[in-house]
Computed example of a mutant assay.
Amino acid sequence: MDINKVNSMDFGEFVDVFGNVIERCPLIAAAVWSQRPFSDLDDLEKHFFDFIDGLPQAGQEGILRCHPDLAGRELQQGTLTAESQREQSGAGLTSLDADERRRLSELNAQYRARFGFPFVLAARLSERSAVPRELARRLHCPPADELRTALGEVKKIGRLRLADLLGGDPAKL
């Protein structure tokens, strides 16, 4: 899809197409739509990320709470978004053995208890074995640092999803 097609979309179509660029946050796409026209993929991406950066901390934490736990309950129940399902599957998180699932579940619970939102990681950019190590490492980060790190991961995910939709190069990560 080219940027001219994006700029010509009506509100409903834009939200349908871009509503999950930021996991389960179609209101962000709705707000970004009003910023048309976009000059290119980078410009569109900038509007999504500027919206996130402009939110108060509570709003940013709310965005993080829209994300599922990696290899968590939503994966087991089959209720992940299509994008999250592809991303977690691509990282090998859909084929964990019982011990690996239990370990991730424990780490996810500890992380959520410490920070108040789920652990967010751009799974497509991670190897299966690295996920629990990174989760364990980030458990020890100061909360303000972890909020910034988690939002950075949201942006990586958003960048990849936009590149998927517009045929851009995600290698700029």
Rank of each mutant, 00 (worst) to 15 (best):
V120I: 11
G59I: 01
I28R: 00
E146A: 05
R73I: 15
P26V: 10
E100M: 06
S89N: 08
G62E: 04
R133W: 00
L147N: 04
Q60Y: 00
E74V: 11
R114K: 15
K46E: 06
C66T: 09
D53F: 03
F48W: 08
L139W: 02
L125I: 09
T81C: 04
E61R: 10
S129W: 04
Y111T: 11
N108K: 07
A91C: 11
A98V: 14
A30L: 05
A29K: 00
L121T: 05
E87N: 11
S84K: 02
A71W: 01
E146W: 00
A113I: 08
R138P: 02
L96G: 06
D40K: 13
L80K: 07
H67I: 04
Q77V: 08
T94M: 08
R148A: 15
L125Q: 11
A29I: 04
P68M: 05
L27N: 11
L139P: 13
L121C: 08
A91W: 03
C141I: 04
N108D: 07
S95M: 13
P142A: 15
D50H: 11
L139C: 14
G54L: 02
L44C: 05
P68V: 12
E45L: 11
P142I: 07
D53K: 09
A122D: 04
T81Q: 03
E146S: 06
F117K: 02
L135S: 10
I63W: 00
P68H: 12
L75C: 11
F49Y: 14
F117R: 03
R128H: 06
T81D: 01
L139N: 14
D145G: 13
C66H: 09
K46P: 01
F48V: 06
L41T: 12
A31R: 06
A31K: 07
S84F: 02
A58N: 04
L75R: 08
Q35V: 10
A113P: 07
G78Q: 06
L93P: 06
A30V: 08
A71K: 01
D43K: 10
Q76F: 07
H140D: 15
C66S: 11
A136L: 12
F48Q: 00
D99F: 02
A109R: 14
Q57N: 11
H140F: 05
E83W: 12
A123M: 03
H67N: 03
P132A: 13
L64D: 00
A31V: 06
W33L: 03
F49W: 14
D40Y: 14
R112W: 00
E45C: 11
A71T: 10
A82G: 14
L70F: 07
V120M: 00
I28S: 00
G92Q: 04
R73K: 15
A30R: 08
D145I: 06
L125P: 01
E61W: 02
F51P: 00
R101P: 01
V131F: 03
P132M: 10
D42M: 10
D43T: 09
E87L: 07
Q110M: 13
P132R: 08
L75V: 12
A123R: 01
A31E: 08
D97L: 09
R124H: 12
L125M: 12
L104M: 15
A109V: 09
V120A: 01
P37K: 03
Q60P: 01
E74G: 08
G92L: 04
F119K: 08
R124G: 15
T94Q: 10
H47D: 02
A71I: 10
L121R: 06
A136C: 10
F48M: 03
R124S: 12
I28D: 00
L70S: 04
A123Q: 02
